[in-house]
Design a protein around this nucleic acid. Structure first.
Lengths: 201, 201
DNA sequence: CTTCCGACTACACGCTTGTGCAGTAACCTA
DNA sequence: TAGGTTACTGCACAAGCGTGTAGTCGGAAG
């Protein structure tokens, strides 16, 4: 399928695949080299070190994603996600959770965009900072919890059809309130009581 | 603080702490032993292997959580989370993501409880299976993405005050629709077009 | 043809990992 | 006091890790 690519490109693709699947530490340079059908030495020749390879993957994934959708961080519009784009996002998020500076920068951009979006709405939000952050991590969770979701739906969420089910579900989730105003009020009161007791102690 | 506990208990606590923090593979038996102030051999003596230790932690975390709140999977009510309970949940979710059967069982219970809850509401949901799964992983994301959240809020979310900010935010999120009916309709149409094109090809 | 340089491989090094195991100290039972 | 089980330590082992490095191959430049 991709055997006509440069060896360097094959290594990069293999790394993104395995890093996304098993995490940065979980994927060994030997595994990646074998997946790319090269020696592990060549990996080192091209990228210097495992960390160098990871940096290259970060940069490449980010540039590819921004190329595809100018402001890619806006996966408010969750559609148009081909399996390939999905994989790139999954890799970048995984790398972010494993402490990548590139990923952290991406997360900051997501937050910035979230604030921007919040300004266009009429939502009542007590703490915009927290609100935007929570929404952001919740969106990301669709990628980080891929295995669990696939298990629950009985089908790999990378499949476009299954992915569409999840998009439909998020749409249902974001287009209507999950709890009644009474429940909200009640919960908020309980929360206030909690924080008040906290400050008193 | 916990130095009056049995060595076995100290090992278990240290394991839960480090497993939750660095992941199952990321925490070594030597690290855990050192944290518990025992030799690595004793760890093996009490739990047989690292996998055995992890199983013991799974079981213990689950029983502790169910003991504290009979049906603990209902963190619909996200309050009442002391740092200790928070850590147990974080451990269990982490272990789940790393392929623990106990964790998977917990996730299944969360789904079951989600369906149960969905029955009591008047929500319009096209695909209950997907809806419940998405809600479940989004709730869990508050634990899995702890570091990212702490960075965004500028304060460790384990702090009760910071945690309260997040609960407030999720309340704001779940008590009102994020997108207008028109936007929802539009997105749904786009999604239908997408799936239709998918089945045609 | 020679020279050179990047692509590429094979192999070995030092380190860390989980595990195995012999040996010691403490404690209960008879 | 003697004996056996349990708690506990220290060390050694094989395997796997990322990395270093000497060396082969092939094509472009002179």
């Amino acid at each position: 399928m991709s055997s006509d690519l440069t060896a360097r490109a094959r290594i990069r693709d293999a790394a993104i695949e395995l890093f996304a699947e098993r995490g940065i530490d979980g994927a060994t340079v030997r595994d990646i080299a074998q997946q790319a059908d090269v020696s592990s030495g060549l990996l080192r020749h091209h990228f210097g070190s495992k960390e160098g390879l990871r940096d290259a993957c970060d940069e490449w994934a980010l540039s590819e994603l921004t190329k595809i959708s100018g402001q890619f961080t806006e996966f408010n519009t969750l559609d148009g996600l081909t399996p390939r784009v999905q994989q790139l996002q999954r890799y970048l998020i995984r790398s972010t959770m494993d402490g990548s500076p590139t990923g952290a920068a991406m997360f900051d951009r997501m937050l910035e965009f979230g604030h921007q979006w919040l300004g266009t709405t009429e939502l009542k939000v007590a703490d915009p900072e927290a609100f935007v952050a929570v929404v952001a991590v919740m969106k990301m969770s669709l990628f980080t919890m891929r295995d669990l979701l696939s298990r629950a739906l009985g089908s790999d969420v990378t499949e476009p059809v299954t992915w569409a089910r999840m998009l439909q579900a998020t749409l249902d989730l974001f287009s209507q309130p999950l709890i009644t105003p009474e429940q909200a009020l009640q919960a908020r009161a309980a929360l206030d009581r909690l924080t008040a007791g906290e400050e008193a102690s």
